[in-house]
């Protein structure tokens, strides 16, 4: 039996460390890369290194950017009186794709989770409170995920924000848009029912 060794083994090992990539996919990627021309692989390697060097967190909202601050924070026409709080930088892109929200963001870099040893001071919560001090913010939209940890984080933030006289809102959860009631799963329907609103 011939096993992977040397550079090939190291390559498969490194690729396999990525999320969603198991040993088989790692092998496939490795063999794919080896089949490519040297220039193409170099370009990929260079892109990775460059991206890692250039991309950093926005000094205001902790979203991803290449400058000191991100496009949203620098944009002159975005609503500076509203901040949307999300868990991770990729949540910002999800919300931006929807093109519904025109305010600013704040990325927490995770959620409260005592089990993982994550408390308020391990998240960008002090930084958020600092942003609320200038008196310009009228509303904070809390868009953490609707799981147990996201919910706890939202409750925690709500309790901090409300005494400041700032409106704190939470994204609704329920039926998917364009979804037929008939095809929604039981839990989603129950949730949507619990969050029903008056017409």
């Amino acid at each position: 039996m011939v096993l992977f060794s040397g550079a090939l083994a190291r390559m498969i090992d490194e690729l396999g460390k990525m999320p969603g990539v198991g040993p088989k996919t790692a092998q496939r990627l490795a063999f794919y890369l080896l089949r490519q021309e040297a220039a193409a692989v170099e370009r990929l390697a260079k892109t990775l290194v460059e991206a890692k060097e250039k991309i950093r967190y926005c000094s205001i909202c902790y979203s991803l950017c290449e400058e000191d601050t991100c496009d949203v924070c620098r944009h002159p026409r975005r609503d500076a009186s509203c901040i949307c709080v999300v868990e991770e930088p990729n949540d910002v892109f999800a919300l931006e794709r929807a093109q519904i929200y025109h305010g600013h963001y704040h990325v927490l870099m995770g959620t409260l989770s005592p089990l993982d040893g994550i408390g308020p001071e391990d998240l960008k919560i002090p930084e958020l409170l600092k942003r609320l001090e200038n008196g310009m913010i009228k509303e904070v939209v809390i868009a953490t995920n609707p799981d147990v940890e996201g919910e706890a984080t939202a409750i925690y933030l709500g309790k901090l924000i409300k005494p400041l006289g700032i409106k704190a809102t939470r994204l609704a959860s329920g039926l998917p848009a364009g979804g037929n009631l008939e095809y929604a799963d039981d839990i989603t329907i129950s949730q949507a029912f619990g969050g029903r609103r008056e017409l």
């Binding site: 408390g119 147990v148 706890a152």
Partner: peptide, 27 residues
Amino acid sequence: VLKQRNTVLKRIKNTHEQTWLEPWNDQ
């Protein structure tokens, strides 16, 4: 929630600092 809440309870055993507990209590 119970696991998270128990972790907090263990951590605040000496301080009895309840602000840590609050986000878990509602749920």
